[in-house]
Design a protein around this nucleic acid. Sequence first.
DNA 1: AACACGCCCTGCGCGC
DNA 2: TGCGCGCAGGGCGTGT
Length: 268
Amino acid sequence: MPELPEVEVVVRGLKQQILNCEITKVDVLSKGVRTRFPENFAKNLLNRKVIDVSRRAKYILCYLNMGGILLIHLGMSGRVIIQQKASYAFQKHNHLVVEFGNKVLIYNDYRRFGDIKVVKDFNPSNLGLEPLEENFNVKTFMALVKDKKTNIKSFLMNQKYVVGIGNIYACEALFLSKISPIKIASNITLNEAQVMVKNIKTVLQSAIGQGGSSLKDFINVNGESGKVQNNFWVYGRKGMPCKICKNEIKTTKQQGRSTFYCPNCQGF
DNA sequence: AACACGCCCTGCGCGC
DNA sequence: TGCGCGCAGGGCGTGT
């Protein structure tokens, strides 16, 4: 599911729902997701208060009092849902239930590509620029693409350069920028970089405003779907007419993932 | 070093 | 109706 906008939507929902709330009970319902829950996982969380919720890349960071961060990554199919405790009912693939008095936070993930753990701090050295921050700009973008022999789509999706962009928003940003997904990153011109930086910010920001993209899995903490999927330019539109030039949208594979593009608009 | 690929999982839609 | 196949938004480990 989740790229930057979807994770951001979840983070904002969590802020509204569990900020300053104390963890009153933790139910571990499975062995874990991508990695196993450690022995002391539940005990570590008990009686601690959520003092802030933020996002770094596609990670959700729930800061706890007395130090430490509950770190959640949604993988492909992870969902974080907040419900009234009274209306909670077990669903298949629920892995974790964290109670905050009369509210519960549920982590559900059928593919188990997500990750949940408590960490002391979170400053990974392998995460790149936040695309919505000011230091993601033409200058930093040009510095990054310099010498990169990989194609621009793979570059955009590589979290060590720019974070938060996955398959959907890479396709969408490249389409809006009229750039071929197979263009070699180092061949990006200054003019193209300007257009791309602007479009990446716009696409992500607009998706946040629309509550994210819900293909099949994504819902926010209140169980609601996003709306971006109704407005994709190219993603998922194979064989359909380009919304700009009416030519047929095509797909190709890059690094094992589907790329959607307009051959006419993007020159490929 | 930089890059490509396979794999971790479950579920769904499609063609036969 | 049922089965097998391919495919799905991420990220990591491994190989070249």
